[in-house]
């Protein structure tokens, strides 16, 4: 299994997509901070309103407060996790998983002394680890951008404590979501379809769970689908002081989704014909 893992790491190292996805995430972080910094300069009168295409709404601006007082670093991290971070990591996972099937490279290890269980398990672990690494790089990028644009003035122990707990929870949820994306791509074996379904899950699945919640309430059932769906849990993760009820639901749901996707993916890979 170590050999297979070593092979996966080498493929990751040589994979352009991981570098492109990381650079894209960093670029989005810088873009976000750049936008806030421009808005701050407009607000402070250093730039005219409308500079670089930025319009600052005077009414929305709470009495001329600094933008940096309105937007915390944690909120930037949240914006990245809930939006672009999920989409980019889903795209990366789709590319990496599909890469094995695109030219049939998976057949070079299948039936060569390694059980299919081992092959799938290593692929699953390596893909998830790479996706998590990208999200960690995204957090580091936010920290660096914070220093570059704002300085270290807002850093304190409370911020780091909240950042660690928020990021840990999001990484756990991202692991579960990564598992779902892997299984989707395993079934599709089509890059376009894999990416489209994964991105649609991020963008629209919460509408479905909201509908399910209404249906469950209609039948007077004391349960909410959105409480256990990973994308809802990612979107609703509290920034400060994660309450125990949410933490319990998020941890249990993540573990269940990880186990379920791991088993489904494995069973599918066992039975499928490799072309």
């Amino acid at each position: 299994m170590i050999n297979l893992f070593s092979g996966e790491l080498y493929k990751l190292q040589k994979s352009k997509s991981i570098y492109i996805c990381c650079i894209t995430m960093i670029a989005f972080v810088l873009l976000l901070y750049g936008a806030f910094a421009t808005a701050e300069k407009i607000q402070q009168g250093e730039l005219e309103n409308g500079s670089y295409g930025f319009e600052v709404d005077a009414e929305a601006n709470h009495g001329g407060n600094s933008v940096w007082e309105e937007v915390s670093m944690l909120e930037v991290v949240q914006t990245m996790f809930v939006g672009i971070g999920g989409i980019i990591s889903a795209i990366f996972i789709s590319i990496f998983v599909f890469g094995e099937y695109a030219n049939g490279a998976v057949k070079n290890v299948t039936g060569k002394g390694y059980s299919r269980w081992k092959i799938f398990s290593i692929k699953y672990i390596a893909t998830i680890l790479a996706a998590l690494l990208m999200l960690i790089i995204m957090i580091v990028a936010v920290l660096i951008a914070e220093i570059l644009f704002v300085g270290t003035g807002r850093f304190n122990s409370e911020l780091f404590s909240n950042l660690v707990s928020y990021a840990s929870m999001q990484l756990l949820l991202a692991t579960a979501f990564g598992g779902i994306v892997i299984v989707i791509n395993q079934f599709c074996r089509n890059l376009g379809a894999g990416i489209a379904i994964s991105v649609c899950l991020i963008m629209f699945s919460t509408i479905i769970t909201a509908g399910l919640d209404i249906a469950l309430r209609y039948f007077e059932l004391d349960i909410k689908a959105s409480d256990y769906w990973i994308v809802d849990l990612i979107n609703n993760c509290p920034l400060n002081e994660i309450d125990s009820a949410y933490a319990t639901r998020a941890i249990i749901s993540s573990i269940i989704w990880i186990i379920v996707t791991f088993i489904i993916g494995n069973v599918h890979f066992q039975k499928t014909d490799i072309k």
């Binding site: 050999n3 297979l4 070593s6 092979g7 080498y10 493929k11 040589k14 994979s15 352009k16 890469g99 695109a102 030219n103 049939g104 490279a105 998976v106 057949k107 070079n108 290890v109």
Partner: peptide
């Protein structure tokens, strides 16, 4: 069964490691 974005050497390197 090859990785199209890799060189021949890199493809064989994957096999060597696997």
């Amino acid at each position: 069964g090859v990785y199209a974005n890799m060189t021949a050497r890199e493809n064989l390197e994957v096999i060597r490691k696997n």
